[in-house]
Computed example of a mutant assay.
Amino acid sequence: MHIVVNAAMSADGKLSSRRREQIAISGEADFARVDRLRADSDAVVVGVGTVLADDPRLTVKDETLCERRLERGESKQPARVVVDSNARTPEDAAILDDAATTYVCLSDGAPVDRRMDLAAHAELLTAGDERVDLLRAFAALQQQGLERIMVEGGGELIFSLFEAGLVDELSVYVGAKIIGGRDAPTLADGDGFVADFPLLSLESVERLDDGVLLVWSVDDR
């Protein structure tokens, strides 16, 4: 399994404002790049916080890219995955539509009634007691044949993936905008590291739109 974390952040490292509202950070060239990255993935993953804040569909927009997936013998759209320990994903969330298969990763502590509601719209994977055990959850995704994984946020999930040693590549678009705010989400939130910091190797730098695309590989863990 190869896991790529992809994100767009402001020049001061914020994913959105302190109100958790979606803010346009990149432009058309980066949107097209993200669409290609999705099309090359078996699954696109987000945390439930991103679902609640942005209600994304996480589908490939370019029909030509969809056709190429079909020509390769793949589904028209990559699978979608929500990491949602307590089953907070709304039943009417865009990510639960019928455009693609959706998996919701839950913990054992998720309420039974919410499980039943979500089971009508998604494939449920249970891993972990009170929080999703990411190692077990991603192993279960791999058993479903999902090898090329794209993670699109948010900061809590990204930190947890780095903490679990699951990230292989980090791709970040840095936009020409300052958002600020001590409570605004950053690329990697969570508890933060105080030792054994994950180390990266810079693979490429590309000017894109009014910002820059940075691609790192994660050093062997």
Rank of each mutant, 00 (worst) to 15 (best):
residue 10 S to R: 05
residue 10 S to C: 02
residue 10 S to L: 03
residue 10 S to D: 09
residue 11 A to L: 15
residue 11 A to T: 10
residue 12 D to R: 04
residue 12 D to L: 05
residue 12 D to K: 03
residue 13 G to V: 00
residue 13 G to H: 04
residue 14 K to A: 08
residue 14 K to I: 02
residue 14 K to L: 05
residue 14 K to M: 06
residue 14 K to Y: 04
residue 14 K to V: 01
residue 14 K to W: 07
residue 15 L to G: 05
residue 15 L to Q: 05
residue 15 L to N: 02
residue 15 L to V: 00
residue 15 L to P: 03
residue 16 S to C: 11
residue 16 S to V: 00
residue 16 S to W: 00
residue 16 S to T: 10
residue 16 S to E: 01
residue 17 S to R: 06
residue 17 S to L: 00
residue 17 S to G: 15
residue 17 S to F: 00
residue 17 S to I: 00
residue 18 R to K: 13
residue 18 R to M: 07
residue 18 R to I: 02
residue 19 R to S: 15
residue 20 R to T: 03
residue 21 E to S: 01
residue 22 Q to L: 12
residue 22 Q to W: 05
residue 22 Q to C: 01
residue 22 Q to I: 02
residue 24 A to K: 08
residue 25 I to Q: 10
residue 25 I to D: 13
residue 25 I to V: 13
residue 26 S to Q: 10
residue 26 S to A: 13
residue 26 S to K: 09
residue 26 S to Y: 08
residue 27 G to L: 13
residue 27 G to V: 01
residue 27 G to T: 03
residue 27 G to P: 00
residue 28 E to Y: 09
residue 28 E to R: 14
residue 28 E to H: 14
residue 28 E to V: 14
residue 29 A to Q: 14
residue 29 A to R: 14
residue 29 A to M: 11
residue 29 A to L: 13
residue 29 A to D: 14
residue 30 D to P: 06
residue 30 D to G: 08
residue 30 D to K: 09
residue 30 D to L: 06
residue 30 D to A: 06
residue 31 F to A: 07
residue 31 F to S: 03
residue 31 F to W: 13
residue 31 F to N: 06
residue 32 A to M: 06
residue 32 A to D: 08
residue 32 A to V: 12
residue 32 A to H: 09
residue 33 R to L: 13
residue 33 R to S: 07
residue 33 R to M: 12
residue 33 R to H: 14
residue 34 V to C: 07
residue 35 D to W: 08
residue 36 R to W: 05
residue 36 R to D: 07
residue 37 L to C: 02
residue 37 L to R: 13
residue 37 L to S: 09
residue 37 L to E: 13
residue 38 R to P: 04
residue 38 R to S: 05
residue 39 A to R: 11
residue 39 A to G: 05
residue 39 A to L: 06
residue 40 D to W: 09
residue 40 D to I: 04
residue 40 D to V: 02
residue 41 S to Q: 11
residue 41 S to V: 10
residue 41 S to T: 11
residue 42 D to P: 06
residue 42 D to M: 05
residue 43 A to L: 15
residue 43 A to Y: 11
residue 44 V to C: 12
residue 44 V to S: 11
residue 45 V to A: 09
residue 45 V to R: 14
residue 45 V to P: 12
residue 45 V to M: 10
